[in-house]
Design a binder for these strands. Structure first.
Length: 117
DNA sequence: GGTGTGACCAGCT
DNA sequence: AAGCTGGCCACAC
């Protein structure tokens, strides 16, 4: 039988959006953390791809709060302005230097822990 | 409809 | 020690 559309048809993409939207102010997480929370660390690449499509999402996604494992602003170039991502994070209290969050370990927000695994 | 790529991560050589 | 490959799912051509 065909799958029932419009109900519970959440895919990896949709799940990523939900998690990212739940990131509190002044916090940041990593692609792998989200992927791991969803149950697949191998899907970390999809998380990044989901961010790329975040502009296509019906709701605004704070993709600037999602960085790589090193706390580096890898996808800053996808915000329309390469400095926008850093500006937003600094505006939330993050310490960024050389495109890398120095206090990433302090503002790191683990979905599996905060949302309740 | 198949192939390639993509804002990653971690393990192996 | 560092460099490369594999793996995952979704989207574009």
């Amino acid at each position: 039988m065909d799958k029932a559309p419009g109900r519970g048809d959440y895919t990896f993409f949709q799940n990523v959006y939900e998690v990212v939207k739940h990131i509190p102010f002044g916090r940041a997480t990593s692609y792998g953390a989200i992927a791991n929370y969803l149950g697949s660390r191998g899907s970390a690449r999809m998380v990044g791809w989901a961010m790329n499509a975040s502009h296509h999402a019906p709701e605004p996604i704070p993709a600037h709060r999602v960085v790589n494992r090193n706390g580096m602003l890898t996808g800053k170039h996808h915000f329309g302005s390469p400095d926008l991502m850093q500006q937003l994070l600094e505006s939330e209290g993050a310490i960024i230097e050389d495109d890398q969050i120095k206090n990433f370990s302090k503002i790191f927000w683990d979905p599996a822990k905060e949302l309740g695994l």
